[in-house]
Computed example of a mutant assay.
Amino acid sequence: MDKIIQFIIALFIVVAAGSVAYLVFFAPSAPTNVSLPVNDSIVYYFYGQGCPHCAKVEPFMENMTKEYPDVDIRMLEVWYNQTNQQIYTQVNAQAGISTPPGVPEIVIGKTVLVGDQDIPNKLEAYLRVIEKKK
């Protein structure tokens, strides 16, 4: 009986290692053709579905989209959407951030606001400036 259990465990380890190797070396990567210009008139709001901090910011963001309808506010879920994850990484890189800080996050050009305190306290001032440019 012990030999059967050892065999099953060994088989499981081999299958798991093979799966990891496949994902690392052979699985097709996500498309990388997403290209975004650095633009300080676009407001990127990155959030994660199920994130408690994002949930606190959500009503504020909904209100901002209504108060500033002429401002291009792009609300992108990044925990479960691969395309949005790529945009998240690229927008942060263009803002000079190699490791994104997490969600909720706002990126406007090279300006970054992070968290359920920073975003509600500072975003509206940026939105006013963007709106005046239009």
Rank of each mutant, 00 (worst) to 15 (best):
V71D: 06
D72F: 00
D70Q: 07
A21Y: 15
I106S: 09
Y44K: 09
N92C: 08
Q90F: 01
P31W: 01
C51S: 13
N39V: 02
N39C: 05
F12L: 13
V71P: 07
G115P: 08
P104T: 01
Q6I: 09
P101I: 06
I9N: 00
C51M: 05
I13H: 00
M75Q: 07
P28H: 08
P120V: 09
F46W: 12
T83M: 11
N121T: 14
W79L: 04
V15K: 02
V57Y: 00
P52K: 01
P104L: 02
F46K: 07
Y45A: 06
H53W: 00
T83N: 12
I4D: 10
A125W: 06
I108Y: 07
D118E: 15
I42F: 07
K134H: 13
N121E: 15
I73T: 04
V14C: 07
K110H: 13
A10C: 00
Q49D: 14
E67G: 05
P100H: 05
E58W: 05
D40A: 03
D40C: 03
S29C: 01
M75I: 11
N92T: 03
I130C: 10
V103Q: 04
T65K: 15
G102Q: 02
V14I: 15
V20Y: 13
K134I: 05
V103M: 06
T111G: 04
A30W: 06
N92W: 03
V107E: 13
T32G: 14
H53Q: 03
V78Q: 02
A16D: 10
N63R: 12
T32F: 05
Q117R: 15
L36Y: 12
H53G: 00
N39K: 03
V114C: 10
R74M: 03
V129C: 04
L76W: 05
V103C: 09
A27V: 00
V20N: 05
F7P: 00
W79I: 00
V14T: 07
F25H: 07
Y68T: 05
E58F: 06
I130Q: 10
Q86R: 14
V38A: 11
V112D: 06
F12W: 02
E131I: 01
C54W: 04
P100K: 02
P120H: 10
D2K: 13
I130E: 10
N33S: 12
F7M: 09
I108V: 12
C51Q: 02
I73P: 05
V103N: 04
A10P: 00
C51R: 01
A55N: 11
Y45L: 08
A30F: 11
I13G: 00
V107P: 14
I87W: 08
N81A: 06
E77K: 00
Y44W: 15
S98I: 10
Y80G: 09
A30D: 11
V20F: 12
T99W: 09
M61C: 08
Y80M: 07
Y88Q: 08
V112E: 11
P52D: 01
Y68W: 03
D40L: 05
V129L: 14
L36V: 13
Y68M: 03
Y44L: 08
P69N: 04
E131P: 04
D118R: 08
Q117H: 12
V71Q: 06
Q49K: 10
G96L: 11
K110P: 12
R128I: 13
G50N: 09
M64H: 11
F26D: 09
L36I: 15
Q94H: 08
P100E: 04
E77I: 01
R128P: 04
A95D: 09
K122S: 15
Y47A: 06
I97W: 03
